[in-house]
Design a protein around this nucleic acid. Structure first.
Lengths: 196, 196
DNA sequence: TAGCGAGATGTCTCAAATGTCATGTTAGCC
DNA sequence: GGCTAACATGACATTTGAGACATCTCGCTA
């Protein structure tokens, strides 16, 4: 049973600690007091209920990191759109980057849970991107699927450099969704197609 | 998750507090209410989106709390290091990106106050980067100095597309520091060389 | 051009909510 | 056992929402 302190709630709501205590005293937010001097604790579940009831945003660190955003990095717009279509219909949120610069900034801005990466993009080595993602703390655990028309050894190398999966072009849509679903299971209630 | 109060927004937009509340009530500006009496809060991101959507200027105090970080985007490592050395000795914090991907991610991650941008990088058009920076709310007010060996019309076009200044290669170190100091005055006590 | 009218914004006031500060206490952690 | 950061509390300062109404803006029409 995860509980939160007033200080944690204050930070998450960007509000003064004093105010959180008043919410609890007033009964707006359900909580309980520890024996000592009466330090407050709020059950995670009650806090989430409180947020929802008042239409307040749920802090990212609480949303169970259940983020299902996917970033598609591919310089061929048609390919990128195609991948996007497939993944969206499978229930994921997608964003498309058509060059390395957009790729990098969307990666940091949106912190997607998964990235599909074209190995060969003009002016940029996919391996470099891979290494960058793996060595940057914010993205070190982001799933990466390398999609490429290169030969098998190249794909093998991508796996060695940290890709979670590879897919050779051209690929089957079903292959893609299977791979993604494997790496990034959708939270219940978001599935567009029955899976069991 | 940074949030703003109606009062803060009112000041930034130079508008009456009452009006901000009406924007929120009317749905023009997305916000939420605290439990108490319904005090309004607006998430920073939503506010930026609102500003951009209505073509309103972004208040300076929102564009990155007065930092003196500079991001150098140049695929020629030697040039980048050289620029870095000059600017560091002038008292700035610098970071170097050697390709577009690093450029984009460092831009979002560090939110530098100024970017030096090479127009011609392999596989990426500097103009695209410029446009991207200008149309992304988080970076719309970031200063950009375009550094390029291209001809005058190309530099002129960069200015038209939103660059704050241009510098043709090869350039003089003094020129560079002058430009940067002009666009990004260092906070007092950080100057490495007396300026008056 | 002047006059008109509807909608948006500014002004004023007051009670309620929130922020700030100082102080003493406790919980969590070596 | 001792130390530090976090916490609760009271008193007080500040901000904020709401109603009522004045003023402004802008398109419209004569």
């Amino acid at each position: 049973m995860k509980t939160l302190t007033t200080g944690e709630i204050a930070k998450m709501c960007d509000v003064n600690l004093r105010t959180v205590i008043r919410w609890i005293d007033r009964g707006d937010l359900k909580g309980f007091k520890l024996p000592g001097r009466g330090n407050n604790r709020v059950q995670l579940e009650d806090f989430l209920h409180f947020l929802q009831q008042h239409g307040m945003p749920i802090p990212p660190e609480l949303s169970g990191e259940e983020n299902s955003r996917i970033l598609i990095i591919d310089d061929e717009a048609a390919v990128a759109r195609s991948i996007g279509r497939v993944l969206r219909s499978a229930g994921y949120d997608t964003a498309i980057a058509n060059d390395g610069f957009q790729g990098g900034s969307l990666l940091m801005k949106q912190q997607p849970a998964l990235v599909t990466l074209d190995l060969r993009m003009p002016g940029i080595s996919g391996y470099d991107v891979l290494k960058f993602i793996r060595t940057t703390p914010e993205t070190a655990t982001t799933k990466v699927i390398v999609i490429s028309a290169l030969d098998q050894p190249s794909l093998q190398r991508a796996l060695e450099e940290g890709a979670d999966a590879v897919l050779s072009k051209p690929f089957d849509n079903q292959q893609l969704t299977d791979l993604v679903k494997d790496l990034l299971p959708l939270p219940a209630g978001r599935r567009s197609t029955p899976t069991e």
